[in-house]
Computed example of a mutant assay.
Amino acid sequence: MAQRKIALACSVCGSRNYTIAASATRTQRLEVKKFCKHCGKYTLHRETR
Rank of each mutant, 00 (worst) to 15 (best):
F35E: 08
V32K: 14
L44K: 02
T43D: 06
G14T: 01
I6Q: 11
K37V: 12
S23L: 10
T48G: 00
M1K: 04
A7M: 13
A9E: 11
I6A: 08
M1A: 10
K34P: 00
T48L: 02
K5S: 08
A9P: 00
N17C: 11
L30I: 07
K5W: 12
N17P: 00
R29L: 14
F35P: 01
R16Q: 15
R49M: 03
L8I: 06
E31H: 07
V12H: 07
S11L: 03
L8C: 10
A9N: 06
A24N: 10
C39A: 13
K34L: 15
K37M: 13
R29S: 15
M1L: 09
L8E: 04
A2H: 04
T19Y: 01
K33F: 14
C36M: 06
T19G: 04
T27K: 14
A2I: 04
I6H: 06
F35C: 01
A21S: 09
H38W: 08
V32A: 14
T43G: 01
A22W: 11
T48W: 00
C39V: 02
H45E: 02
Q28L: 12
A2M: 07
A24S: 12
R46W: 02
V32P: 00
G14M: 01
Y42W: 06
S15G: 02
G40H: 09
N17L: 06
L44C: 02
T25N: 13
Y42N: 10
A9L: 08
H45P: 03
R26T: 10
R49D: 03
L30W: 12
S23K: 07
S11Q: 08
H38R: 09
L8T: 03
C36F: 04
I20P: 00
A7D: 07
S15E: 11
H45F: 15
A21L: 11
C36T: 04
T25M: 12
K5Y: 13
E47F: 01
R4S: 10
C10M: 06
Q28H: 08
G40K: 04
R49S: 02
R16K: 12
A7W: 07
R16W: 06
G40Y: 07
H45W: 03
G14S: 00
F35Y: 15
T43Q: 14
M1Q: 04
T25P: 00
R4G: 08
K5M: 14
R26C: 11
A24E: 13
C39P: 02
A24V: 05
L30E: 09
Q3S: 15
Q28R: 11
H45L: 03
T19S: 06
K37L: 12
M1T: 08
C13Y: 03
Q28C: 09
C13M: 07
A9Y: 13
T19F: 02
N17S: 08
N17E: 11
C39I: 05
T48C: 03
E31M: 14
T19D: 09
A22F: 13
R46P: 00
R49G: 01
C10G: 07
T48K: 12
